[in-house]
Each structure stands twice: as structure tokens, then as C-alpha cells.
């Protein structure tokens, strides 16, 4: 009886949703046709739970690929969460070998997680296709803090590393890496920093507002509303150049006098051991996706910074980041 109720109600809801979507989507028509590579469904693995950044990127890609008819076959997205993405990575390496239809989202976070979890599989084993987006990190202090620029903060850190309590995302994640790099630039052993890892952006913001921590690091979009309202003050961003956050010019860490640059990038990789021809076929599709107006529209709507590098450039970039982050994780005492 319960089943019948559920099925009936589900059917009703499906019907409604489908009608709505169909009505909303029928304005978009196709342009380009796909290549000859796909011989079956393409599967994009999100090595994290639904709702996160990787998940959103993958599902947006799925929509753009579908809307532009860039792949002849259906594109599926599925989640394999666990251990900073390394569970998904090892699944791709072990089960997907040689299959050009198996793609995976990845990013800076996974590089750290590989090291931290002593993962057997490595990001250099898979086939890099392209880096897609990147977001700079921002260093903030509460609005009533006495720190007005990065230099004063890091000078105090250098004088007494234990005096500055840092807050950010989980231990070993991008935010923690930034603090480690800043410490190094200030001449402090990364191991000595006092870092409180929070799960999720909400908690870290709460920690800054309540005064638990004195300085925070996270993605620019995460802190933007509180910077705009003056609850938080942005000291520097970790990108190559300064940016305007909430109407205020914020210098890059480099411009503030410390040689640190770190972008939280996301990339698409394919299974290891696929032929050069297939790799190029996949890369062509992603090139076309990147050039499509739908993708540009997605970037704009999500506030993602375009960080497109494909082919050998992507390979070199991922390899260089792997080397750098591995060393840093060790210096932070996490490996």
C-alpha cells in the first residue's frame, strides 16, 4: 500500500517537473554535432558528495554538453565521495584503465588529499584533459581587528607564531595550504602555525565573527558578503593580481611583498592508459565546450574564474602543482 502511494506520488511529481523543465528548455536548439569518439555513454565521476564545487562543475558541464549537443551520447554524472576524492581517484585508476568514456573532476584539494591519505593512486597517473576554473583565496581579519595590511599580520606571526590563531577549511585543504605558504614566506616553520580547521565555510565564518580565530583564509566568494558589510576586512588575495572584492581594491599577496601564489583550481581528467587519438577527441570536445556561449554564461553566473589550459599545458600544470603541494603537506606535518 505504501509502495503504491509512493509510486503514484512520485509519478505525479515527475510529470510536473518534466513538464516544467521541458517548457523552460525548449528555447535552446543545437548547433554543433559531436565527433566519432563516443561509442557509449560518457560518465563523469565527481569524487565528492553531491552539492559541492566539483559536483556543481560537473553537473554544469553535463548541461552545457547536452545543450550544445557536443557529445552524441548521453553524459552521466555520478558521485564517489570519500577521503578528499582519493577514493574516487583510485576507482578511476583501477577500474577505468583504458576507457576514454570515464572522466573525473579533480582539483587542488585532491593533490593535498593524496599526500595526506597516503593514497596509492596519484593524479599524475590519469590523463589530464583540461583545467577549467580557478578561484583565488583571500586572507581576512575581523572588521574590528587592528591588522590593516598583510605585512603587519605576518610580522607579528614571525615574532610569535603561536600568537596568531588562523581559521579556515579542513586540515590539509586549500585554506590550510595558503596559511602554510604565508608562514614560509614570513620565515616561520609551517608546523608552528596555530590553525583551526572548520568543516564548511559557515563554521569558519562563525569562528571569525565570534573571535575564536584572528585571521581567516577561504575562497573569495565565501567571504564576499561579510567583506561587503564590513564584518570582515580583506588583507590580500592569493591570485597573480589584486582584485576588487565588494567594491574594495584588495592587493595580491605578491603585491603586499610576499612571494606566495595559490589558486584553488578545478580540472577534468580522463582514465589512465587511453590512446592519444581518444585523448585528443575528448580534448576537442572540451575545447568546444569551453568556447561555447553556454559555458561562458555558466562561468559568469557561478562567478567562476576562467582558468582554461588544455593538452600538454594542463599536464605540466598539474604535475608542477603536485610537486609543490606534496612538499608543503610534509612541511605542515600532515604527511
Amino acid at each position: 500500500m505504501k509502495r503504491r502511494v509512493i509510486v503514484a506520488a512520485v509519478a505525479a511529481v515527475v510529470a510536473t517537473v518534466v513538464t516544467t523543465v521541458a517548457a523552460a528548455g525548449c528555447g535552446q536548439q543545437s548547433q554543433a554535432g559531436g565527433g566519432s569518439f563516443p561509442s557509449r555513454n560518457v560518465e563523469i565521476m565527481v569524487p565528492a558528495a553531491a552539492g559541492g564545487g566539483w559536483d556543481l562543475t560537473a553537473r554544469s558541464m553535463q548541461q552545457v554538453l547536452k545543450a550544445g549537443k557536443l557529445v552524441d551520447r548521453p553524459v552521466e554524472v555520478y558521485n564517489v565521495a570519500g577521503a578528499g576524492g582519493t577514493v574516487g581517484l583510485s576507482q578511476l585508476v583501477n577500474k577505468g584503465k583504458g576507457d576514454s568514456h570515464q572522466w573525473m573532476m579533480t582539483g587542488l584539494v585532491m593533490v593535498g588529499a593524496i599526500e595526506q591519505n597516503k593514497s596509492a593512486a596519484d593524479l599524475t597517473e590519469v590523463t589530464p584533459i583540461a583545467t577549467l576554473t580557478a578561484e583565488p583565496e583571500v586572507v581576512v581579519v575581523p572588521g574590528k581587528s587592528r591588522y590593516r595590511d598583510l605585512k603587519t599580520l605576518l610580522d607579528d606571526l614571525a615574532a610569535n607564531p603561536a600568537a596568531i590563531k588562523w581559521g579556515g577549511g579542513s586540515v590539509g585543504g586549500t585554506d590550510h595550504l595558503v596559511v602554510g605558504l604565508l608562514a614560509k614566506a614570513a620565515g616561520v616553520q609551517p608546523r608552528q602555525i596555530q590553525y583551526v580547521g572548520y568543516s564548511g565555510g559557515g563554521e569558519a565564518k562563525a569562528g571569525l565573527l565570534s573571535g575564536d580565530v584572528m585571521a581567516g583564509v577561504s575562497g573569495v566568494s565565501e567571504f564576499q558578503p561579510l567583506i561587503a558589510s564590513g564584518e570582515l576586512r580583506a588583507l590580500a588575495v592569493t591570485g597573480p593580481k589584486g582584485v576588487t572584492v565588494a567594491g574594495k581594491q584588495v592587493p595580491s599577496v605578491k603585491e603586499a611583498g610576499f612571494d606566495v601564489e595559490l589558486m584553488n583550481w578545478r580540472a577534468l581528467v580522463a582514465a589512465p592508459g587511453i590512446s592519444d587519438a581518444d585523448t585528443q577527441a575528448v580534448a576537442r570536445i572540451i575545447d568546444r565546450m569551453h568556447a561555447s556561449p553556454e559555458w561562458q554564461e555558466t562561468l559568469k553566473r557561478q562567478g567562476w574564474e576562467d582558468f582554461y589550459r588544455s593538452g600538454p599545458q594542463a599536464r605540466e600544470f598539474i604535475a608542477a602543482e603536485t610537486t609543490r603541494i606534496k612538499a608543503l603537506i610534509g612541511e605542515l606535518g600532515l604527511a
Binding site: 509502495r3 509512493i6 512520485v10 515527475v14
Partner: peptide, 21 residues
């Protein structure tokens, strides 16, 4: 009959409605 209907119903609801593989 129940077994087939139940598994098919759950399968459809999850894969089609919730897009869970």
C-alpha cells in the same frame, strides 16, 4: 509481483527523479 514492482519503482525514482546512479 511485489518484488519486481518495488525494485523497479525504487530504481526509476532514484535514477530518473533524483539522478542517483
Amino acid at each position: 509481483v511485489v518484488a519486481v514492482l518495488l525494485s523497479a519503482g525504487v530504481y526509476l525514482a532514484f535514477t530518473q527523479l533524483l539522478s542517483i546512479r
